[in-house]
């Protein structure tokens, strides 16, 4: 069939000596992605273990979003390979998609559906329980506007709704791209709640953010520069929030 089966050919030449199902929530092995002739990622290698929170840093255009989109299987690596919980990013897309949720720049809402209808649709497409929707809407503070069309929502409200989608789905690998953009302080703690819930399930989270994390700390910071991962010393981040993830 179209999705996974359509890329069956890749299976023959790709194995995963570096990706271990038990040990890695996600791994990228020499991943390069080119848009047109512009490389967005260049031979990135990254390992994320279960229970880990990884923060991606880097200037605009350094490839943070592309890295998250590669892990979510929204874009295919031009070269290199990777996996999520042992599933190949190219050949086992559907398995990867079952486990990951990407909250990106676009909130993926239908303007003429209400908040609750948007979430119910997501639940049906992901085989989640639509009965969760009211509780989830309450959790993100949108219960009063549950039946209003999302076309009139502010950016912050849309962002909250995108996060509500994560709560409906309960993914094992949470990918957050600038999650604080457009959110007020109160909603900022929502990010913490999402990450904590994912970790509690034994999952992992990768965040790309220019802002400081609110209320918790990353286990590790990876900096991207011009599409390549570089290692930087990272004393300040952890000392700023000594409590870690609570």
């Amino acid at each position: 069939m179209g999705g996974a089966g359509g890329f069956r050919h890749v299976v023959r030449r790709r194995t995963h000596p570096t990706c271990r199902i038990d040990a890695h929530a996600a791994c990228l092995d020499g991943v390069t992605r080119v848009f047109g002739q512009q490389p967005a990622l260049v031979r990135v290698r990254l390992v994320v273990r279960p229970g880990e929170v990884v923060l991606l840093r880097g200037t605009n255009g350094s490839g943070k979003s592309t890295l998250l989109r590669v892990l979510a299987t929204a874009v295919t690596p031009t070269h290199g390979r990777g996996c999520v919980f042992g599933h190949d990013l190219v050949t086992d897309r559907r398995d990867v998609r079952r486990l990951t949720e990407l909250v990106g720049h676009q909130t993926r809402l239908y303007g003429d559906l209400s908040a609750a209808e948007n979430l119910r649709f997501v639940a049906r497409m992901h085989h989640a329980d639509p009965a969760l929707v009211p509780a989830v809407l309450e959790q993100v503070g949108l219960l009063e506007v549950a039946d209003e069309r999302t076309r009139g929502f502010s950016q912050g409200m849309r962002q909250r709704l995108a996060m509500a989608r994560t709560l409906v789905r309960a993914p094992s690998l949470l990918l957050l791209d600038e999650p604080y953009a457009g959110l007020d302080d109160q909603a900022g703690s929502l990010v913490h709640a999402l990450v904590a819930a994912t970790i509690r399930r034994g999952g992992a989270a990768v965040l790309a953010s220019h802002d400081d994390l609110v209320g918790f700390a990353a286990d590790r910071t990876v900096t991207l520069a011009a599409g390549e991962t570089v290692v930087v010393p990272q004393p300040s981040l952890l000392s700023a929030a000594p409590g870690g993830l609570t």
């Binding site: 390992v47 229970g51 970790i199 286990d219 590790r220």
Partner: peptide, 20 residues
């Protein structure tokens, strides 16, 4: 490319899932 081992080495001891 920074070898992955380096990335892991410079990271603080990962906290187990239980402590989160």
């Amino acid at each position: 490319v920074a070898p992955v081992a380096d990335l892991v080495a410079t990271a603080p001891t990962p906290q187990g899932a239980g402590s989160h």
